[in-house]
Amino acid sequence: MNARRDDLGDPRPDGPARPPARRRPDASMSLLADLFAGKLLDHGYAEAAARRAAGGTGPRAGRLRGAGVLLVLVLTGTLIAVAVAEVRRSEPVAAERRSRLVEAIHARTAETDALQRRLDRLRADTERTRTAVLARSDTGRRVRGRLARAAAAAAALPAAGAGIVVTLADAPRPDPAGRDRAAGGRVYDQDLQVLVNGLWAAGAAAIGVNGQRITPTTAIRAAGEAILVDYRPLTGPYEVTALGDPARLRDALAGSAADRRLGALRERFGIRYEVRRTSGARLPAAGTARLRYAAPRTEDGQ
């Protein structure tokens, strides 16, 4: 049995031929017909409504989001206002505490200075009594000589004589607050360390910084913007006094590593660096050294 395909492609058994089905004249215009009938528009609106329902969009959701944003802004503004009020309220308290702390520091410093002056007087009285006792015999005079040499080496006695004075000071400030001054224009503890070591190398017999005696164990450190010499704060300008022959000290310091460093700081950052002679410098005795590891040396079998 033969088969053939009709217009729709369906295999049918042989039989009398049927006329082909007639197509609607507006078949090609079905899309426009549906559009005019409102089917496509209704379907599109239905999909959009479904999407809004699924995603939480719509006028009501938009109003809720707007209310949430407004609430967040109100809470943020409230927190900022509270923080500003707390800062303003704490400023007078901080200023009062700082003022009390500064007063306490000044009071303790005055007490320390008074105790140091009393200690100096007691040391002077002790030294006079000891000298008078040792001067009564030859053995005592020899012991007194040894003690004098050891005391000079340890800076335990006041010193006076000729020498040089080296002045270090910060660079001039462009304005009263010093806001525009470069950090390199300040004198640091390392600069004083280099200068003191350079003066020792030049042959100084005794050294003091702003009247504070330097010993072999004296520390020069920094605490914030202050420089501590033997743990006492000093303020600039810093005058470093070195006792010895003025001409020899000045010639030995000129061209040394310390002189080159300080000269470069003067040229580059404007730090004040001056050297002058003095004929009557006086340096006080240093504090008593606390030896932790040293022991007395036996001499001549004693």
Rank of each mutant, 00 (worst) to 15 (best):
G208E: 12
P176W: 04
V240F: 05
Y188V: 04
T126V: 07
D14A: 09
A201S: 05
P92I: 09
A289W: 00
R52V: 15
G140P: 02
G270Q: 12
L70Y: 09
Y45L: 14
A48L: 10
L249N: 10
R12A: 13
P237M: 03
D300I: 02
A48P: 02
A153V: 07
A54K: 07
A54C: 04
G178R: 14
E111T: 11
Q302E: 03
P172G: 00
R118F: 05
A46E: 08
G55V: 04
Q302W: 08
A107P: 02
N2T: 05
G58T: 04
G244N: 03
A153K: 08
R268D: 14
L134V: 15
R24Y: 01
T241L: 03
T131D: 13
R141T: 04
E127T: 06
A183P: 12
N2L: 01
A46Y: 01
R179D: 13
P284C: 11
A285G: 09
P59N: 06
G184E: 06
R51Y: 04
R248Y: 06
A46C: 04
R23E: 12
G163S: 13
E267A: 09
R18A: 02
R22S: 12
P216I: 03
L262E: 06
R12L: 15
T57S: 13
G145S: 07
G224H: 12
I214R: 07
T112D: 05
D113C: 03
A53P: 00
R88V: 04
A124G: 10
L157N: 01
E47L: 11
R24V: 01
V133P: 00
R186Q: 05
T76G: 06
A152K: 10
A289H: 03
L41W: 14
N2C: 02
P19L: 07
A258H: 11
P237S: 09
R12G: 07
D251M: 07
R128A: 12
L168T: 06
A252R: 09
E47D: 08
A205R: 05
L115Q: 14
A223E: 10
R149C: 08
L134Q: 11
P176K: 03
R5E: 15
A201M: 02
P172L: 08
A81I: 09
G224C: 13
K39M: 01
A67Q: 10
K39P: 00
T298A: 11
A85N: 15
S28V: 10
L265A: 09
G263E: 01
P92F: 05
A295D: 01
A49L: 10
A281C: 07
A160E: 08
R24P: 11
P92C: 07
L168P: 05
R181M: 12
